[in-house]
Simulated assay, not measured.
Amino acid sequence: MTLLDVKNLSYSYDGTVNVLADVSLSVEEGTIVGLVGPNGSGKSTLIRNIFDLVHLQSGSLCIGGHEHTSAKAKSLGMYLSSNDYLPEFLTAREYIALMGTLFGVEPDDAQAHDLFRKFSMEGRYDHLIEDYSHGMRKKTQLVSALLMRRPLTVIDETLNGIDLEALHLSEREFRHVRDEGRSILLCTHDFAVLERLADRIVFLDLGQVVYDLPTRDLIAEHGSVAAMVFDYLGSDER
């Protein structure tokens, strides 16, 4: 079943130049899809449209078969942004409880403590977020997503700034999420991570989909995801 369905999406901030131009893509249930592209390619604007953070101008967006602006659609997806902005006046426990209230989920404290331990933050679950480092805030974002367990999780460069051990743990947990039939749209410049995790790669450039193919096919043709991206960016096709 198609979980995220984007059809003919175009978007402009000034009414003249399209940041997104007739973009179509889908994310099936139980898949990890990598989203790559240079800065300014339209990745963040695409994500903002998916989560109704900007007004849809052209095209259509559905999550789980529901219009993306509906309460049902919004309950199905969770967005982890590229920044580490979290409410500093809350503890991690309070923040995760707040997320649980928003999504109608009762967080499992035992699981939360276990994830904090695995992410090398044992004993910090009841500390104020203002006392967390950048990496700890990123890991708190990841823990919240693993506890909320939404059908669709969109991760926008959230893996930047975490240590190698946490990255390895995140990859393992993402595979568990996929095995449960849930899906992840993973936006990252870490192409090696995508080669290990992603079932499919969507490559955006200048607001258009350049490639949308299974990862194994891209690697077979280009040798690596990085080679595919850099070959294209250095070519006359742009």
Rank of each mutant, 00 (worst) to 15 (best):
S10N: 07
Y13M: 09
T16P: 09
N18P: 09
N18V: 08
V19C: 15
A21W: 15
D22A: 10
S24K: 14
E29N: 15
V33C: 05
G34P: 13
L35R: 09
N39Y: 06
G42L: 10
S44G: 07
R48S: 11
I50G: 04
F51E: 00
D52K: 14
V54S: 10
H55K: 14
S60K: 12
G64V: 05
G65L: 06
T69H: 11
A71W: 03
S75P: 02
S81H: 10
S82P: 14
D84C: 12
L90K: 04
A92H: 00
Y95R: 05
I96C: 02
A97G: 05
L102S: 06
P107D: 00
A110L: 10
H113L: 14
H127R: 12
L128V: 00
G135E: 00
R137L: 01
Q141H: 05
A145M: 05
R149S: 11
L152A: 07
L152W: 03
L152N: 06
I155F: 14
E157L: 06
L167W: 08
L169Y: 08
R172P: 05
E173K: 07
H176M: 13
R178I: 01
E180S: 10
G181Y: 06
I184N: 01
I184S: 02
L194G: 01
L197C: 03
F203S: 12
F203I: 08
L206T: 10
G207K: 10
D212M: 09
L218F: 14
H222G: 04
A227C: 12
A227L: 14
V229Q: 10
V229P: 03
L233M: 15
S235Q: 03
